[in-house]
Design a protein around this nucleic acid. Structure first.
Lengths: 202, 202
DNA sequence: ACCTGAACACCGTTCAAGT
DNA sequence: ACCTGAACACCGTTCAAGT
């Protein structure tokens, strides 16, 4: 086949990431192959290696997009909330909701990859930090006297619980027989954490 | 090559699982292949399919072994502890310790597999339940009035936090720059949860 | 210069054929 | 009966050769 079109490297990268993202959403990362990505965008597999160093780097960019969505979901969940506690609850439910609706993306996002020498896209690590900052901000409002370390540790303690609940729900390892158990667990977690946080934030 | 030895199906299964476990420990599940397993035990790859239906089933049995170790670690951590709070703290640290020492096993254990039609080995699901029961028991001691549902939800809320901390630490997504941040986070989590739990367990 | 097409060194899994 | 060896339909990645 002849040359199909002229795309700059950046356009090719965007095409590839978009195609890969849709494959991940539909089938899961396990079914994504270089040959299938190439097929979707109408190129040969070899061409991918002109735009990225390997398949793993492409998946890292998919993760950056996923985290962008997750972050946006959390921010807009907070928008409708009244006060820091409601805000944290809304964020927690949004996080669970993302894990349920975009299961394959969530899986890929938190699955440990062997990142040999690839640079993690800056958008990726930046968005994770931002997520924690959203939590820290609400905790700070609830306890203005808390210092930075307490806020950082507290936000990570609380959010590890939300994340763990989402992760265990997806891997069906929660072993509890109640409808919407995940939401109940996250509600409990947030209630109890804030209970204690309000009394003594340090 | 001629027949090398006579093994019953059960002996073969044990050989295979043991070989696979050691490959997982050394290199991670991503580097485990049917050909490598066969090489370790001195058979041909095809033979694996006389003992198991596929590679995935073998990995499920590896998970059963891993969970056995994790459970044993948690139980023996409790043995040295004085009282329910110390017991939960010791378990939490043991859980983190397992995730750190046996990283590849932990990864495989909580990575979502597409379990087509394979039966999860009963030892596997049973051990997860047992882990939660260890937590429930300590929570019950702290609040004898708590009902079963509160205990189940509480144990999962608390343990999702411990699990989430371990998972985020391994995937380097905690983004906090403190030595032993994971332990600090788990300590915080347990302290705050119990703080609230003691006051109002329901 | 951009992209292809073929190749290389791998996979998981099956199954006829050997012993 | 037990196990092999070869095959099938795939992989990710590279790179000489075409346009």
């Amino acid at each position: 086949m002849a040359r199909r079109s002229r795309h700059t490297r950046e356009e090719l990268q965007a095409l590839i990431v978009e195609a890969t993202l849709s494959l991940v959403r539909e089938k899961g990362a396990g079914h994504v192959t270089a040959r299938r990505i190439a097929e979707v965008i109408g190129y040969t597999p070899g061409m991918l290696y002109a735009a990225f160093t390997n398949l793993q780097e492409i998946l890292l960019h998919v993760n950056a997009e996923s985290l962008e969505s997750l972050h946006a979901d959390c921010v807009s969940a907070q928008d409708g909330a009244d006060g820091p506690e409601a805000s944290l609850r809304a964020m927690g439910l949004a996080y669970l909701g993302f894990a349920e609706r975009r299961t394959h993306q969530f899986d890929l996002l938190f699955q440990r990859m062997e990142v040999d020498d690839l640079s993690v896209p800056p958008a990726l690590s930046q968005r994770i930090r931002s997520l924690f900052e959203l939590v820290e901000r609400q905790l700070a409002t609830l306890a203005p006297a808390a210092d930075d370390v307490a806020l950082q540790v507290g936000a990570r303690a609380l959010w590890s619980g939300v994340h763990g609940t989402a992760a265990l729900t997806l891997s069906r390892q929660l072993y509890i027989d109640r409808p919407h158990a995940d939401r109940e667990i996250v509600e409990t977690l947030i209630t109890r954490f804030l209970d204690s946080w309000r009394q003594a934030p340090s």
